[in-house]
Nucleic acid binder design. Structure first.
Lengths: 342, 342
DNA sequence: CTGAAAGCGCTTACAG
DNA sequence: CTGAAAGCGCTTACAG
């Protein structure tokens, strides 16, 4: 078995210099047509594959992007990562993905690892309590884009759903159905984007003089379910429930079933985050869709602009959420009157 | 702004040679305690970060693993990727993830890209028609593990659910409930692992002299739904439906709802692949859980053994699926008699 | 347009 | 145990 051929072997085979081979392979057009063809033929004959590690060392560009994400079991993040990978790959980049499991300590370690691996930039979805350490871990020389879990004042360009407006619109919709006592179930109150959702919700409620019932529920699906079962057993129940993300929605659906709360007759349900299976639940669940395609595209645009040193006009992108009405939301029933069986 | 410090700068700062710094940072124990401490202190003062690209070039080890996957929107693959990333990261490796979108052509290109990036090994979930080109694309020098979509005779070590047995057990369970006409809905008949599921299903059915009704449905959720709606409108309906993966399950649930087929009274439903939201459907859907944790662990073990040159006793791991019984499967109803409302 | 030389920042034998 | 030298496989000025 022969050792892998190097660029030098190709140069010998094609009877040209090393530098010429390099030029051809990098697509430099200042190479005579005849030499280029000889080089390409030699590459074919030797079945040559370029060593990008060597190229990166010398050129100081790895053409690699790090993606730091809490986890990819959350469908929203999986979708985001998939889109970003496609965009990066189309642009000649490879992605290194690291998950943090919401642990800031681990996030910091993993960020160091991919910095040592010389990524050209990082796209990060911060961990729950990790926004503060981000700037010191990433440093100021590294192109970086914050996605989804933005902070009040991000030191880097950022992209997210316009959370305030999306929550505002969601609340307005429920209010328009006649609901006055509406609960917003939230599991990550320390996150700035959750804070924005709460603020949008409260704004709409106060404008309509409604009863804004913000509930902090447990982090996981199970914990959220248990918290909400408590809420449903209270005397003065809300007539509509707005869940702040897909984990809470999963918990809420379980709780509604366990407590035999009829949706939408006894309680309307509106979810933040739309997913395939929401359509299949009975009744199908109304939701606010986050424009994940657009978020990924904008994030990649901000990243490539930074890498190539192009100016960025608006570094903080907020994309509009979209209300999708299905069967889980309905006009508030007159009390004591049922509109039908589930 | 100073340039990034190099190992040379650290050596100067600590008044030792470059080689000694390298030894300390690589954890080589043949360095005097005093020198080691001086080196570490110097690293701290300069805030030094190693350049792993340079290390990789010289040592010919990138400590990077490529993961090739059709997509990560499929929850099964997302889970697999997440577990593999955690295992790799714990072992000092970083993962490069590339998606193929089921296109063999793109898979080939992406495999070439990560080979040029000098990954130490690749873990691959082949694309639909990509098993044939795999060996030529990957080559024989690259450590490789095939996961999930194994072929009849894989040239590399492989890990998957024991599909034959899992489907056999699933069919046996439905048979034990009294069903005799059972449909297996399949959307990727060309895949070897699907072939195994069909074979296991047919074996159980023929042993019980049942009517094994294998149906090829469309690839996507929508297409599968439409195919199945056709099945449900036929005169001689099966009394139980076994779906061969999560996409088909999504389509099947939609079709059952649209055609108002009552589950489980008119038809039992058993899904291959278990997911969180199956528990929330009404009725909750029985499923065969694929041991994804175990699959990831075995895949990583096979990978690290290859990288370190350790022998592999059994290169083709088949992990047992697990039947989870919920509400969507029930004893076959006497014809004409309903057991209750949905 | 082409080639010879230097060098990216490390690790690896090897000499002392 | 420590250091000086060579070299991993490329890209990048620079000379011709």
């Amino acid at each position: 078995m022969r050792a892998k051929p190097t660029m030098n072997d190709v140069a010998t085979e094609a009877s040209v210099s090393l530098g010429t081979v390099s030029k051809v392979l990098r697509g430099d057009s200042t190479v005579a047509k005849e030499l280029r063809e000889r080089v390409l033929a030699a590459c074919g004959r030797l079945n040559y594959q370029r060593n990008r590690i060597a190229a990166s060392l010398r050129s100081r560009q790895s053409h690699t992007i790090g993606i730091i994400v809490p986890d990819i079991l959350n469908t929203f993040y999986a979708t985001l990562v998939e889109k970003l990978e496609n965009l990066a790959s189309a642009g000649g980049y490879t992605v290194m993905i690291v998950t943090t499991g919401e642990e800031p300590q681990r996030a910091r370690e993993r960020i160091d690892v991919i910095k040592e691996r010389q990524v050209d930039g990082m796209i990060v979805i911060p961990s729950l309590d990790g926004s503060d350490m981000l700037a010191s871990a990433i440093g100021s020389d590294m192109p970086c884009v914050i996605v989804d879990r933005i902070a009040a004042e991000d030191p880097y360009p950022s992209v997210a759903t316009d959370n305030f407006d999306a929550a505002y619109q969601g609340a307005r919709y429920l209010l328009s159905l006649g609901h006055r006592h509406i609960a917003l179930a939230v599991n990550t109150p320390r996150l700035w984007n959750t804070h924005e959702r709460i603020a949008g919700f409260e704004r709409a409620m106060s404008e309509a003089k409604g009863n804004a019932d913000v509930r902090i529920v447990g982090m996981t699906v199970e914990e959220a379910r248990i918290s909400l079962e408590g809420l449903f057993r209270e005397g003065e129940r809300p007539t509509a429930l707005f869940t702040s993300n897909n984990l809470v929605t999963l918990g809420a659906v379980g709780a509604l079933q366990n407590c035999r709360v009829e949706v939408p007759h006894e309680m309307s349900l509106l979810a933040f985050d739309d997913f395939e299976w929401l359509k299949l639940l009975q009744p199908a669940v109304s939701a606010i869709h986050q424009p994940v395609d657009q978020i990924a595209v904008e994030a990649w645009r901000l990243m490539s602009h930074q890498i190539s040193g192009r100016p960025i006009a608006n570094p903080h992108i907020r994309a509009a959420g979209q209300l999708i009405i299905r069967r889980s939301t309905a006009a508030r029933a007159e009390s004591g009157k049922k509109l039908g069986a589930i």
